Amino acid sequence: MRASTPRLKQRITVSTRTGVVLLTTAAVLSTAGCFGSSDDPSRNGPSKGGKSRAEGPVWNTRPSSIASLGDSVTRGFDACSVLSDCPQVSWSTGTDVNSLAQRLRSGARSWNYAKTGAVMADLPGQIEAAVARKPQLVTLMIGANDACRNSVTAMTPTDEFRSTFASALTRLRREVPKTQVYVASVPDLKRLWSEGRKNVLGRQIWKLGICPSMLKDSDAMDAASTERRQQVDERVDDYNQALKDVCGKDPLCRYDGAVHKYRFTERELSKWDWFHPSKAGQQRLAAMAYRRITSP
């Protein structure tokens, strides 16, 4: 027994040193994030009720009540008769078309607070009306009239557009924290000009003052007219970026760039002004919104 004592002490010393090294290494790896810790929500597993502790608000793909906000497009302007609203064919809450409300849930409660001619500055008032209803979903399409002014200098500044939208969304979230928001991008006004100008009657109607910053002198292709249309087009892009940025900071807000990208055909434009969506165009907008809202 005495002869083996030094060898036993040597093994104990080596084992102790190895344990110290392993503990030190583990501490370093844990600090570096190599091992899961209680602060890593992805490692915590499901909490009570089966939901992850890090899980945010859950998007409801089947809201049962809708409040629509925005401008003439959401009011169905010029879709049924000349120079008049036709909310029953609205892409959002219409009853005479396969609207978003109809697609989501037959008989869903809905309210249309959009107003023809509305600009971003009118959004706070529309939200004020909507929050009283406590809808599960708010749809918004606004911004075209901010660009459709008498001149490019009269267009709403992008910073003002952005700040007004951010303030309005903050107010909505404060009043109805669980309400979801669908934000449609501003349609491509330059594309609408390009498509609508093919119609002789449409060009005459435009002279009444529809979106003059883009549609005035619709046949003119001189440098000044081309530059004017380009400035409007760029401002619309800026508005859409602002909508996307602000909406992206809210977990219950979904921005949809598909509306701006969509190439409306002549059949999908109003036969009275060749600029606003026709009944077919309204249904196309409804389809895009439905796809975005019901996506996982």
Rank of each mutant, 00 (worst) to 15 (best):
Y239M: 03
T158Q: 14
S218Y: 02
C148N: 01
D238E: 14
L189H: 02
E234T: 13
R162T: 07
I210N: 01
A32D: 06
L22F: 13
E128T: 14
V82D: 15
A287Q: 11
A3F: 06
G33K: 11
N145K: 06
S151K: 09
V186I: 12
A27K: 04
S47V: 02
L104Q: 05
S84L: 09
A154P: 00
E227R: 10
D71M: 02
L172K: 06
A79E: 06
K279L: 08
P251W: 13
P124M: 09
W59A: 06
C211H: 09
L201Y: 15
D256E: 14
L123H: 06
T13I: 10
V236F: 01
T116I: 01
N199V: 09
Q241G: 15
A184T: 05
L83T: 09
R75M: 12
R173Y: 08
E266M: 13
V259D: 02
S295R: 12
L23V: 14
Q180E: 13
D188W: 00
C80H: 11
L104F: 01
P157R: 05
F165S: 00
K249H: 12
D40F: 07
T16L: 12
K216W: 07
G202P: 03
G143M: 04
Y290N: 12
S68P: 04
D159M: 05
W111E: 06
L252T: 03
L100A: 05
G36K: 03
R197I: 09
D39I: 08
G56P: 03
L104G: 04
S47R: 14
D219Q: 11
V73R: 00
S42C: 07
N240I: 06
T179F: 10
L243D: 00
M120K: 03
R203I: 05
R105H: 11
C253L: 07
S110D: 10
Y182H: 10
L215V: 15
P177L: 05
L285V: 09
R235Q: 11
K261F: 02
R75C: 07
G70Y: 06
C34G: 10
V183K: 03
L22A: 08
P277A: 08
V97K: 00
Q241P: 00
A101L: 03
P6Q: 14
E195L: 08
G125L: 12
S163P: 02
A289S: 11
L83A: 13
T16N: 04
V236R: 00
C34S: 15
R53E: 10
T226V: 13
R191H: 15
Q204G: 10
V82A: 14
K279I: 14
D217M: 03
T95W: 05
A26N: 02
N112Y: 08
A101E: 01
S64C: 12
W193M: 01
L137W: 02
